[in-house]
């Protein structure tokens, strides 16, 4: 996991909250890709909401630990796994962050 990476939700997915569950539905894709929907549990949805294209993974983990009772090592491992899962279905994408001049 790259702690300085920034991820944003992919526009090909829409999120719907149904019966207390966060559901990701692929849209604008070929039907072969659209034959599944994806469900996130409560912590998965809370992390998904934070992939806003502005905050780094490290920022997200820090704010998440303020809210949830979790050890840093456990959270980093879980975020790493979730990122891999979301990237594999192209639900998120890494965004380039412009760095200002350092001089």
């Amino acid at each position: 996991m790259n702690p300085t990476a920034v991820y944003a939700k992919h526009p090909d997915y829409v999120q719907r909250d149904v019966a207390g569950e966060c559901i990701l539905v692929p849209v604008r894709r070929s039907l072969t890709d659209a034959n599944s929907i994806y469900v996130l549990n409560e912590t998965g949805a809370a992390l998904w909401q934070r992939f806003d294209g502005a905050h780094t993974v490290e920022n997200i983990c820090t704010s998440f630990m303020d809210e949830y009772d979790v050890a840093p090592s456990q959270l980093h491992q879980d975020v790493d796994t979730l990122l891999a899962d979301l990237l594999s279905i192209q639900a998120i994408q890494e965004v380039a962050v412009a760095h200002g001049p350092t001089g």
């Binding site: 034959n35 599944s36 929907i37 994806y38 469900v39 996130l40 549990n41 409560e42 912590t43 998965g44 809370a46 992390l47 303020d66 809210e67 949830y68 009772d69 979790v70 456990q74 959270l75 879980d78 975020v79 796994t81 979730l82 899962d85 979301l86 279905i89």
Partner: peptide, 17 residues
């Protein structure tokens, strides 16, 4: 504020509609 209980994040695939 007490912290919320933590469970590992999970992504489930639901094949389909």
């Amino acid at each position: 504020t007490p912290k919320k209980p933590y469970t590992s994040p999970q992504l489930y695939r639901v094949p389909l509609q």
